[in-house]
Design a protein around this nucleic acid. Sequence first.
DNA 1: CAAATCTATTAAACAGTGTTCAATATAAAA
DNA 2: TTTTATATTGAACACTGTTTAATAGATTTG
Lengths: 201, 201
Amino acid sequence: MSISKRKEQEKIEMHKRILDSARRIFLEKGYEQTSIRNIASAISYSPGSIYFYFKDKSEIFHELHKEGFRLFLSQMKALDVIGDPYERYKAMGLVFIRFAQNHTDYYNLMFLVSETGKAEGEGFQIAQGAIEHLSGVIQQCQDQGRFQGLDNKYLTLMTLSMVHGICSLYCKDRMSGFFEKSSEELMLHGYETFLAVIDQK
Amino acid sequence: MSISKRKEQEKIEMHKRILDSARRIFLEKGYEQTSIRNIASAISYSPGSIYFYFKDKSEIFHELHKEGFRLFLSQMKALDVIGDPYERYKAMGLVFIRFAQNHTDYYNLMFLVSETGKAEGEGFQIAQGAIEHLSGVIQQCQDQGRFQGLDNKYLTLMTLSMVHGICSLYCKDRMSGFFEKSSEELMLHGYETFLAVIDQK
DNA sequence: CAAATCTATTAAACAGTGTTCAATATAAAA
DNA sequence: TTTTATATTGAACACTGTTTAATAGATTTG
């Protein structure tokens, strides 16, 4: 059925067009300031048509939510080439921070927009995987004699909280006002201070 | 002018009534899910009347924003009785975490709701004071020989990021899903791990 | 080929939102 | 008592997410 295949292809393309439009506006204006009517009119469609392809506004958001996590994970995966687990551990934080800097809107979508409520959906499954990956790297560090006497689980949580805290302050622009230097500089130095503290453990 | 005084008093009371209504609904439903009409009807007033007392919805929010910071600061100030600076430093983090646990909605209002955008307004001035206070305590620790070779500014930022990261994950309910234990337990153990790491510095 | 069916699209409608404003009612001052 | 100032209202405006009946277009069927 070549014809039905083409139909299906067109449906996929329409799905993509809506997502492209939504991504642009979501990342520019944020969740609440983006309307279905905006998304539709940007691609010369009627608001109602959107609901033929997506259940509701939230479903479009979750699609992009997933997208962000996939991008995030791909950047984390790139660090697998680093052999030494402690070096990899340190690099993971840097990649995390750089992700927040280069994809601030995705970061907001993924970690700070409350819309989602509970930690559910495919995006969070990817996140779960990333956390387990971090936990594994920390375990490798511990196997090498680092972080002695510290529980792996809490160490993972602490590391995560550390970098997320830095990125969260950055993404909500709560840094620049309180310290003089540029936010980007502050993030790096804050993280380096953390590494300096954790280094002798 | 006793009459005009009474008038003024009534105006203040009306201001307070609106704020009380708004606080209840804001803290229960969050910023976006709270409407002017809700706030007004809860005290049997017309929506338009609200605008006689407040410029807009955002101004009501900022009033509560301030309120949260004042409550926060009062709890921090209670730690002044602790003489030893390092003990005070450690207690500050605990108070921070406990504040996020006991006043999750205020915490969201103060640190996580994006509405405000830039770090401006009276609430942030109070926050600035709290940060400088933390910086001072850390300086006292450093004067005692702790945290040698670390920059006070970045140490302050790191500490702040650490506890805020923990609380941020908690308030957005991004913890319970990823680790088994209860969120409250995780927060404390995560923070204790941080203290254990920083302890020998 | 014509009729019936299925698919995609639309405009209109509904109930909600923040905000403004002319019309008031109430109270104070003249 | 009349004028003035203050406080309150309900209606209106331009939005929002979402639903739905009507419809145009293409595909399949008789």
